[in-house]
Deep mutational scan, measured.
Amino acid sequence: EEKRQVKQVAKEKLLEQSPNSKVQVRRVQKQGNTIRVELELRTNGKKENYTVEVERQGNTWTVKRITRT
């Protein structure tokens, strides 16, 4: 359940930055209360990979860091 929520948060964050792209989740890793989500962003056939680190704060998820990989 929490992985599902985190995927959603990570996707939304990337789509905010580039709204007309397609996002696909590649991998989800958990480390303590930080969850790392690896995503693939496609814009006009151009692929970019991103890693989004999401942290739990109380009962909400906040995006800590977005890295292009």
Rank of each mutant, 00 (worst) to 15 (best):
Y50V: 08
K47G: 04
E2Q: 14
Q8Y: 03
L14N: 01
E53R: 03
T60C: 05
K11W: 05
E38K: 12
A10M: 02
L39P: 00
T51K: 05
L14I: 10
I66C: 04
Q17T: 10
I66V: 13
G32N: 06
E1V: 06
K30N: 13
Q5W: 09
K11A: 12
R4W: 12
T51S: 13
S21E: 01
Y50N: 00
K46G: 07
V52A: 08
E2G: 04
E1S: 08
N44K: 11
N59C: 04
E55K: 05
T62W: 07
L41Y: 02
V54T: 03
Y50W: 13
T60F: 11
V25S: 02
S18A: 08
R36W: 13
N33V: 06
K13R: 06
T60G: 15
Q8M: 08
R36T: 09
E55V: 12
N33R: 12
Q8D: 11
V9P: 01
Y50D: 00
V23L: 04
R56E: 05
E38L: 12
N33D: 13
T60N: 14
Q29S: 13
L41A: 13
V6N: 01
G58K: 07
G32V: 04
L39C: 14
S18R: 09
G32M: 04
K13H: 07
E55I: 13
K46Q: 12
I35W: 15
S21I: 01
T34C: 07
S21A: 11
R65M: 09
G45D: 09
Q17K: 09
V63T: 03
E55P: 00
L41N: 01
E16L: 03
L15F: 02
T62H: 08
V63K: 00
V52K: 00
K11C: 09
N33S: 11
G58N: 11
R68D: 05
Q24G: 05
K47D: 05
S21Y: 02
S18G: 02
T60L: 08
R42P: 00
I66S: 02
N33I: 07
Q31L: 14
N44I: 07
V6E: 02
I66T: 04
Q31A: 11
E40L: 11
E48C: 04
I35Y: 15
V9N: 01
N44G: 10
K7E: 15
R27V: 04
V23A: 10
L39H: 00
T60A: 09
E1K: 08
A10I: 14
N44Q: 12
E40K: 05
N33T: 13
K30Y: 15
T60Y: 09
N20S: 08
V28Q: 04
E1D: 10
G32C: 04
N33F: 10
T69A: 09
I66D: 00
T51V: 14
G32W: 06
R65K: 13
Y50Q: 00
K11H: 03
V54C: 06
K64Q: 08
R4M: 09
G32K: 06
R26M: 12
R56Q: 08
E48H: 04
E40Y: 11
T34W: 05
L15E: 04
T62A: 14
A10R: 01
V28L: 13
N59H: 09
E12C: 04
R36G: 04
T62L: 12
T60W: 09
R36E: 13
K3F: 15
I66P: 02
N33H: 09
I66A: 03
V6I: 14
E2S: 05
Q5N: 06
N33K: 10
E53N: 04
V52G: 00
Q17D: 06
K11I: 15
T43P: 02
T62P: 01
S18W: 14
K22S: 11
K11M: 15
S18V: 13
K64G: 08
K47F: 11
Q17L: 15
E16G: 04
R27Q: 07
R42C: 07
V37G: 00
K11N: 02
V9Q: 05
K64H: 06
T34H: 09
S21G: 13
R4N: 10
R42K: 10
R4S: 12
V25C: 05
V28K: 00
T43I: 04
N59K: 11
S21L: 02
R68K: 13
N59I: 10
L15Q: 07
A10L: 07
G45W: 06
G32S: 05
L39R: 00
R42V: 12
N49I: 12
S21N: 02
Q8V: 05
V9S: 02
K13S: 09
Q5F: 11
K46H: 11
Q31H: 13
N20K: 05
E53W: 12
L41K: 04
R42H: 10
E16K: 04
E55G: 07
V63M: 02
N20L: 08
Q57H: 10
V28A: 06
I35R: 03
R68T: 06
I66R: 00
K46S: 10
E38W: 14
E38N: 08
G32T: 04
K64S: 14
V63L: 03
E16Y: 02
K46Y: 12
G45S: 11
K13Y: 13
E38D: 13
V9M: 10
T34A: 12
E55R: 05
Q5I: 14
E40V: 11
R65N: 12
K30E: 14
A10V: 10
E48P: 00
K11E: 07
E16H: 04
Q8L: 08
R65W: 06
V63C: 04
Q31G: 06
K7W: 15
Q29D: 14
Q17S: 05
V63S: 02
N49M: 14
K47M: 08
G58W: 06
V52H: 00
V28D: 01
L39Q: 00
N49Q: 10
E1Q: 08
E55S: 10
S21T: 03
N59W: 05
T43F: 08
K46R: 09
E1P: 03
Q31R: 13
Q29G: 08
G45I: 05
V52R: 00
T67R: 07
